[in-house]
């Protein structure tokens, strides 16, 4: 299978995604320029983190109009997997491929730190290799990561098992203290209705080797590889 890693002007997680997929997991991966409109060579599309178009105006607001995003929407319609990480999650929300929005952190500061994610749903193609409730150690790095949706949307997400990950303590307890940005219901990642699009604020490509403090992010990639 082949991963396509989208590069917008201002994207910086592209290289880390490539490193973890190609160098660590031995997968076929390639960069996809934001002007590309043909995604047929790829089995999974990655929208990496960074500051696409400087995140001027609003995070992800300009990137959603990139030519590649029409192709990503088509890709999604075919039910193929798309994963948006950090800025990629923001872009997916702006493009309405995922519901809700990522607002400024409640403390109004950038945060780069380890977080512990409780796997809420291990039957998605992104989490199939996780045990139910497994806690993954994966870092965040963002200023706008506070997940927000209206009450109806939130209820729908919760009722249909579409919350993939929640910020938790290392022991897996979902507490206010474990929430690094004020996200509603400690939400760190969600999937779309069809279950083929995942958006998450933490960076699995950063926890790809023990020497970096954690290799838990690989479980997400391995789930995708096994799921296709």
């Amino acid at each position: 299978m082949k991963f396509g890693i989208v590069v917008f002007p201002g994207t910086w997680s592209d290289r880390d995604c490539y490193y973890s997929l190609h160098n660590i997991l031995g997968q076929d991966a390639a960069y996809v320029w934001h002007k590309e409109t043909n995604l047929s060579p790829y089995d999974c599309i990655v929208l990496p983190g960074g500051f696409s178009y400087g995140d001027y105006l609003r995070t992800g607001a300009i990137a959603r109009f990139s030519p590649v995003m029409d192709a990503v929407a088509e890709f999604d319609k075919k039910g193929k997997p798309v994963i948006g990480i950090c800025n990629g999650f923001q872009v997916l929300c702006e493009a309405h491929l995922l519901p809700g929005v990522l607002r400024q952190n409640d403390h109004l500061e950038y945060r780069c730190q380890w977080t512990y994610l409780k796997t809420e749903n291990n039957s998605t193609i992104f989490t199939g290799k996780c045990r139910r409730g497994q806690v993954l150690k994966i870092p965040i790095s963002h200023y706008e990561g506070r997940y927000y949706a209206d009450d109806d949307t939130l209820k729908k997400l919760e009722d249909t098992g579409r919350v993939a990950f929640r910020y938790a303590t290392p022991g897996g307890e979902v507490t206010r203290e474990a929430n690094p940005n004020g996200a509603l219901n400690n939400i760190a990642g969600i999937i779309n209705e069809r279950g083929n699009v995942l958006g998450m604020m933490p960076h699995p490509e950063r926890s790809c080797e023990d020497v970096l403090g954690s290799a838990d992010g690989n479980i997400i990639w391995e789930s995708i590889i096994a799921g296709i």
Binding site: R15, Y110, R111, C112, Q113, R206, E209, L212
Partner: peptide, 16 residues
Amino acid sequence: VYRQYDHQVGDNTVVL
């Protein structure tokens, strides 16, 4: 202060 800086991008940082 440091938590406001992205100190892990690049997949290289071993000691934070």
